[in-house]
C-alpha cells in the first residue's frame, strides 16, 4: 500500500503542498481544499495527512469508502450520502470537507505534492496493508 509519509522536521511552511493538492484535485489554490494540511506550531510546522489506516471504511453506512487495488482508501462520490461520519471518526483528523462540498475528500497518495515540496519533507512509501482494517 502506498501512503504519504510527511516529515514535519523538514517543513519550513512554504505551503506548496497545499497549493499543489488543491490545484490538482479542485483546480483552486485554497488551503481548505487540500488533503494535506500545514499548521504553524509554536516551534516549526506540523503536517497532517491521511495514513491510509482504513478505519473510516467500516464507519461508512453506504460503503462509499473502499481500498482500491493498490490499498489506497478512496471516496466514491456517487455512493456518498454526505453524512460526514468519516470526518468525525478519522483517528488522525485527516478526512476533510471543503467549503460547500457535498462529499468528503482525502489524500489518495498520488504523489503530486512530493514532487513540488521544495524541502523534501514528503515521501511516498509502500507498506503491506494486508493486516490493516478493511
Amino acid at each position: 500500500m502506498k501512503f504519504l509519509r510527511p516529515d514535519s522536521s523538514k517543513c519550513e511552511g512554504k505551503f506548496v503542498c497545499e497549493r499543489t493538492c488543491s490545484k490538482t484535485f479542485f483546480k483552486v489554490e485554497d488551503s481548505a481544499c487540500s488533503s494535506i494540511q500545514v499548521r504553524q506550531e509554536l516551534k516549526g510546522f506540523s503536517l497532517n495527512v491521511c495514513n491510509q489506516c482504513g478505519e473510516c471504511v467500516s464507519v461508512c453506512p453506504v460503503k462509499a469508502l473502499y481500498r482500491n487495488k493498490f490499498g489506497t482508501v478512496m471516496v466514491n462520490k456517487e455512493a456518498c450520502v454526505s453524512c460526514f461520519m468519516c470526518v468525525g471518526f478519522c483517528p488522525t483528523l485527516s478526512m476533510r470537507r471543503g467549503p460547500n462540498h457535498k462529499s468528503p475528500f482525502k489524500c489518495v497518495a498520488c504523489g503530486a505534492c512530493v514532487k513540488t515540496c521544495p524541502k523534501g519533507a514528503l515521501a511516498l512509501e509502500e507498506v503491506d496493508h494486508s493486516r490493516l482494517p478493511a
Binding site: 456518498c80 450520502v81 454526505s82 453524512c83 460526514f84 461520519m85 470526518v87 468525525g88 471518526f89 470537507r97 467549503p99 460547500n100 457535498k102
Partner: peptide
C-alpha cells in the same frame, strides 16, 4: 444524496453534525 431537504444552510448542518460525530 444527503441534501434532499434543500436546507437553507447546508454548511451549518454539517458543522453541527461533524462536531457530534
Amino acid at each position: 444524496k444527503g441534501d434532499e431537504n434543500n436546507p437553507v444552510d447546508f454548511d451549518r448542518i454539517v458543522k453541527v453534525g461533524v462536531k457530534l460525530h
